[in-house]
Design a protein around this nucleic acid. Sequence first.
DNA 1: CTGAAAGCGCTTACAG
DNA 2: CTGAAAGCGCTTACAG
Lengths: 356, 356
Amino acid sequence: MMASPRTPGALPPPPARTVTRTNVTSIDVARLADVSQSAVSRSFTPGASVAPKTRARVLEAARKLGYRPNAIASTLSTRRSRMIAVVLSNLQNQFYPVVIETLSQRLQKDGYHVLLFVTQTEDADELLVELLRYQVDGIVMASTQLSSSLAQQIADARIPVVMFNRTSNKGRISTVSSDNLGGGRAVAHFLADGGHQRVAYIAGAEDSSTNHDREEGLRAGLAERGLRVVARAVGDYEFERAALATQELFGSLLTSRERPDALFVASDHMAFAAIDTLRGALGLRVPEDVSVVGFDNVPQADWGAYRLTTVQQDAVPMIEATVQMLLQQLEDDAVTRDHVVVPTQLVLRSSARLPK
Amino acid sequence: MMASPRTPGALPPPPARTVTRTNVTSIDVARLADVSQSAVSRSFTPGASVAPKTRARVLEAARKLGYRPNAIASTLSTRRSRMIAVVLSNLQNQFYPVVIETLSQRLQKDGYHVLLFVTQTEDADELLVELLRYQVDGIVMASTQLSSSLAQQIADARIPVVMFNRTSNKGRISTVSSDNLGGGRAVAHFLADGGHQRVAYIAGAEDSSTNHDREEGLRAGLAERGLRVVARAVGDYEFERAALATQELFGSLLTSRERPDALFVASDHMAFAAIDTLRGALGLRVPEDVSVVGFDNVPQADWGAYRLTTVQQDAVPMIEATVQMLLQQLEDDAVTRDHVVVPTQLVLRSSARLPK
DNA sequence: CTGAAAGCGCTTACAG
DNA sequence: CTGAAAGCGCTTACAG
C-alpha cells in the first residue's frame, strides 16, 4: 500500500537501557553558575526573590547548557500544569476548527496549552476520567455532554469547567453559548417578513441545547407572526443526515401546494447539504422556490456557491468569555458558575428572499 | 457586549491556601487495602509482579476511593508522558480537521493523548522549544516547518518526530506524505488527454514541499504530452489569496484566445475559491469554459455545488503510517528516519472536462 | 537575597 | 510476591 524506504544505519542503535533524553536539569545549571539549585529555580520564577546579578548568572549558564525547566516536574510540585483540556466532537462542522484555532492561540497567549480530546459520541464521561489524570488546570467542553454526577466530581476537585456552545448542565457548570433562542426568533421574523408562509425546520442533535433553543426561538418567533413550523426532520448536525432530511421534507411534495417555501436549518454545515439537495436531486431553486437560512456563519457560508443567509455565532467573544471564566477561576482558586450568552446577528446573503 | 449573570454564592469560597484537588494518592489506597504503596503501583502496572489476590484488593480499594494514578507523577519517574505533540497551522483547510480527528482518535486507541499546538506561521521552532518542556513522547508536525538545527536537537534528545505532509527536512527527520509528484503528473495527463491546451497553475505556499512536488509533477506530466504551464499565480494555500490569484490569471484574458482552458489548483480549499471566482466575478462556466482540478479530496469536494475533480490524499493511511513510525520508535527506544509516501488517486467528478 | 531540605506522587531496582 | 527506599526535577516554606 505504501513505500517505506527505511534509511539504514541512519543513527546508531542507542545503548539498551540508557535512555538519556536532554537531561539538563536545574542542578547542572546550578553547578555551572555556582549557586544553589533553589537559586536556579527562583531565577525562572517570575517575581521570586533573586538578586539581579544572580539571576543573570543563572540565565547565562542555562543558555549555555540549553536548559529549560521541566514542566512536568513543575506541575508535580505546584499542582498547576498550565494545560487546559479541550474536549470536542463534530470537527466536520467548520465552526469547531475555527474554535480550536482561536482558543488554542488565545490560551497560548496566556501561557496555557491545549490538551485535545476528540470523541465521536457526545457523552464524554469516560474520556474525562482519563483526562483528569493529567492534572489539567481547566476543561472546555465543546459540542459534548457531561453527566451531572461527573460534573459534580469535577467541581469537587475544584477544576474549572466551561461548557462551550452547550447549556444542558447549566445547573452545575459554567456555560458559554450564543443567543440561540434570539437567533431562532430573528430567523422566524425575517422569514415571516419576507412573506414566507410554510416554514420547515431541519433539527440538529435532538438532545443538544443548541438545537432545542434554536427551534424554540423559531417556533416562538413564528407564533408571534401567526405562523408555525409546517414540517420538521432531523439532521443530527451531520451532512449526510441533513441531505436525507431535506429529501424527506421536500421529496414527496415537489409539485404540491404543501411544499415548504422556507427552510431553517440548525447549522450551516447541514444547510449546505440542504441547498445541494434542493438544487441537485430535487431541482428546486434557492431562494426562488425555497429560502434557506442556516446557523453559525462558518467561513463557507460566504462562499460564492452558497452565499448563505445565516445567524452569526461569533466565536471570538465566545472564546474570550470562556478563557476569562477559566483564568478568573484559576486565579481565584475558586470554582464558580457563570452563564454567558453572546448575542447573535442575522447575516443576510442570497440564499433567502429578503423582506420588501 | 454580553450578559453575565453570575450565580452568587454557588460554592463557598475555598480556604485560602488549601488547594486540595482530588488528592487520593496511592498511599491512601495502600492504607485502605492494607498493602504497601509499591503494591498499589504494581497493581496498576500491566505485567508487574503482584499476586492476583493482592491486585484485586488494591483495585477494590482504589474503586472505593475513586483513585486514578496521577499521570504527571508517573511521567516524572518513567520519563514517558504518553502525550504526543501535534503542531499545525492552516486549520481553515478542511484536510487538517480530518487529520486531527483521525490522528487523535488513533492515538487514543493506543493510550496516547494529543497535546495540540496551533501556529499561524509555518515556522515552529519557538513553539517546539516550549513544547519540549512537557516531555512529550513524540511530535507530529503537520503543515509546518522545522529548522535543521532544532531538528537535530530533537533527534539528539531522542524524541521521535514525524513531518506530516511535508518533506522539506527529509535528511534529518522522518516524513509521511502522499505522492504529490505522482498526483501532479496524473492531473497533467488527465488534462492533456481531455484535450486541454492551456493549463494554468495556482500554487500553494512557495516554500512548502507539497507545492513544490505538485507543481513539478504537473510540469513533468505536461512536458510528456508536449504541453507546458502557460500561467501561474500564488494562492499560498489561502482562500482569499486564491481568489485573487484566479482574478490575476483570468481577469485580463476573459475574451482572449490566451485564456487558460484548464486550471490546476494546489489544494481543494483554494480550488473552491477559484471556482467561485470563475463562476461569479468572471462569469465563466466550469467546466465548459475552464476545467478545474484540485488536490486533497476534502469532504467539501464532494458537495453538490462544486463536485470537484481532485487528487485524493488519503488521510487514513497517512496517519496510520505516522502512528506506526512513532510507536515503533517509542517501543525500540530509538530514533530512526523513514520516508513513507502514500499513493494518490485522481477522483473524477464534474469540475473538469473528461477525456473522450 | 540565599541555601538546605522536604515534598509533590509516582516507578523500580534491591533485598528478602 | 512484597516492602522499604531512592529517585524523577522541580517549588517553596524555613532559617539565616
